[in-house]
């Protein structure tokens, strides 16, 4: 049996390499830091937000190897060699991702604080299910709290973006933008 690697002193910084939004990154931090803390504090990626740091709200959602997870409960050290995707990685070449575009169009981001998390959770949903129905969306987003929108504009935006990502020419319905008049 190989001897266990000698533990680093608890607070000394440990360096890891990982892929963040398609870029190779090396970062050093105290070993007990969460991915959330390292993203925000050591990589200046403040697009990832937090509302509880206990796994109770979903606001800190990022994707690790494609899977949406709660960055407040992921140890950054456990991400060595992995692919991390945050909201900063979504818009490409100065163009909004279709989900971002639909969120903007429908007003699905009110205060915008929960928005990065919803976008990443929705992106993962569509990746696995390009044609999600309303129930699929509700279930996939049931781990993300939003206090502003009542979720409805978020559902509509995910539906709209999914349709556009399938290549359909979809537009928001007048009722969703103007209500029933």
């Amino acid at each position: 049996m190989p001897p266990p690697p000698a533990p680093a002193p608890a607070d000394a910084k440990t360096k890891i390499a990982l892929d963040v939004n398609g870029e190779p990154v090396e970062v050093a931090f105290a070993p007990h830091k969460t991915l959330l803390e390292v993203l925000r504090e050591d990589l200046s990626l403040t697009g990832t937000k937090h509302g509880c740091e206990l796994g109770e709200c979903g606001t800190c959602t990022v994707r690790v190897d494609g899977m949406p997870v709660l960055s407040c409960l992921v140890l950054a050290l456990a991400c060595a060699g992995r692919r991390v995707r945050t909201v900063e990685g979504m818009a490409a070449g100065g163009k909004l991702h279709p989900l971002q575009d639909a969120f903007a169009e429908l007003g699905a981001a009110q205060c915008g604080y929960c928005t990065p998390a919803f976008l990443l959770a929705a992106e993962a949903l569509i990746a696995g299910n390009p044609r999600p129905d309303r129930d699929d969306i509700k279930r996939a987003l049931s781990g993300n709290l939003c206090r502003c929108t009542g979720y409805i504009k978020i559902y509509e935006a995910v539906e709209l973006a999914a349709a556009r990502m399938r290549g359909e020419r979809a537009e928001p319905t007048p009722e969703s933008l103007y209500g029933v008049r």
Partner: peptide, 14 residues
């Protein structure tokens, strides 16, 4: 931010 206390993290393979 509610933070973890400091600790040593080990990742055994076996």
């Amino acid at each position: 931010m509610l933070r973890l206390p400091s600790f040593t993290y080990l990742q055994p393979r076996t």
